[in-house]
Design a protein around this nucleic acid. Structure first.
Lengths: 223, 223
DNA sequence: GTCTTCGATGACCAGGATCCGCATGGCGGT
DNA sequence: ACCGCCATGCGGATCCTGGTCATCGAAGAC
């Protein structure tokens, strides 16, 4: 899950970025409005968090522009307490949720989780393929009831595969959602990580869940 | 269940009132300290939520006055992030729990539920993980019956870890709850304090309670 | 229709670079 | 002196790289 954060206060931005990254999201941070909009339109983010008060281009305009392009991804806006009336406009412009600064980081994380859940499928929170279960809230993964320990990247990759199981996921799609902007296209990191996951998830089991679609990419499914 | 909320910020107060009412509590809201105390003494509430910073009479004084009357109902205090030290005084004065503003409303509801449960089934107000016991009322910590001396910060950190045991706590979460808002993100104070705690709690014991979740944060649990 | 060949693609491995967390010593303020 | 905080170096986990080897599938030969 890749998230764009548009926030001009460096400290706040870094704080949010770090918190999200420790929750295993891929995060791009942008401190400028116009640049942020550009990035938002160029990349297929899973969610966008945008401050309303920004240099060069207001958060409100960013939201409007995104929606004008018929991009449906969940947007969360951040407003200062003084601009209470602004957030109504923000929601009208097409934002999905708002948070008033200062906010508790827990709450931001909870909101983002809720937005992403709502966005993909209207599922009950936990993801399940066959006997493989992933709980995004606790980041706990089990197969056949047995706990599986994953590193941050491994987890991020698995979550992406599970959220889009049954569909073929190409390498560009995977890199776009699991890694952030400084990803090098000309490597085989993705294959390597798929291999790591196979070792932890499919190794030694009769029923394989991770399938290779030769010439296209990978797919996670029970068959 | 009837709850009294003493909070002078109209917006926050209304928000809390509404949330509690949606949980089917009966709620009285009061924006003034002296008036609030009067109400607290006049009516038999099941719980009281009180902001520390109030006009006419501070939250601290309210708590003291209520306890002086030997009224045992659970009291939850709300403190601004800047008054981290105040909440210690609040707990000393007889409050049962605290919450730092800004907080997630879900957390407030959870705390209230816990307080009310505690009140009825007289389960002890102490926190316990394995043989590690923390008593918020007396700020006393023991492991295996043996007393452990902690500094203010160490205690604050441990209490936070214990209140959220079994869950991964990221550094941003910890810094937000245990330190105040002008926390410098680019230091390793948190690691240092976790280390201090380890020395006092886990050092020399087979069963470790403080676990590192590499890339994410820390977790307190018995496993 | 079957077999063979061969280029392309992916699996897997080993090692290196990098980042993260731990421990410790030191500094300033109370 | 104690507490809270900061800075640094070290060791190890994690992430990535570059390579070799296995596998697949298309195309051509028989």
């Amino acid at each position: 899950m890749r998230i764009l954060v548009i926030e001009d206060e460096t400290k706040v931005g870094c704080f949010i970025k770090r918190a999200l990254e420790e929750e295993s999201y891929a995060v791009d941070l942008c401190e400028d409005g116009a640049k942020g909009l550009e990035m938002a339109l160029a990349t297929d983010y899973d969610s966008i968090i945008v401050d309303l008060m920004l240099p060069t281009l207001s958060g409100l305009d960013i939201v409007k522009s995104i929606r004008r392009e018929r991009i449906q991804i969940p947007i969360l806006i951040l407003t200062a307490q003084s601009q209470v009336d602004q957030r109504v406009k923000g929601l009208d412009a097409g934002a999905d949720d708002y948070l008033t600064k200062p906010f508790a980081i827990d709450e931001l994380l909870a909101r983002v989780r809720a937005l992403l859940r709502r966005g993909t499928t209207d599922s009950p929170g936990v993801l399940q393929i066959d006997d493989l279960i992933l709980n995004p809230a606790t980041r706990e993964v089990t197969r056949g009831g047995q706990r599986i320990e994953l590193t941050l990247k491994e987890y991020a990759l698995l979550e992406y595969l599970m959220r889009h199981s049954g569909r073929v996921l190409t390498r560009p799609m995977i890199s776009e959602h699991v890694w952030n902007q400084d990803f090098d296209t000309f490597t085989n990191v993705i294959d390597v990580y798929v291999n790591y996951l196979r070792n932890k998830i499919d190794r030694g089991r009769t029923k394989k869940l991770i399938h290779t679609i030769r010439g296209s990419g990978y797919m996670l499914k029970a068959d």
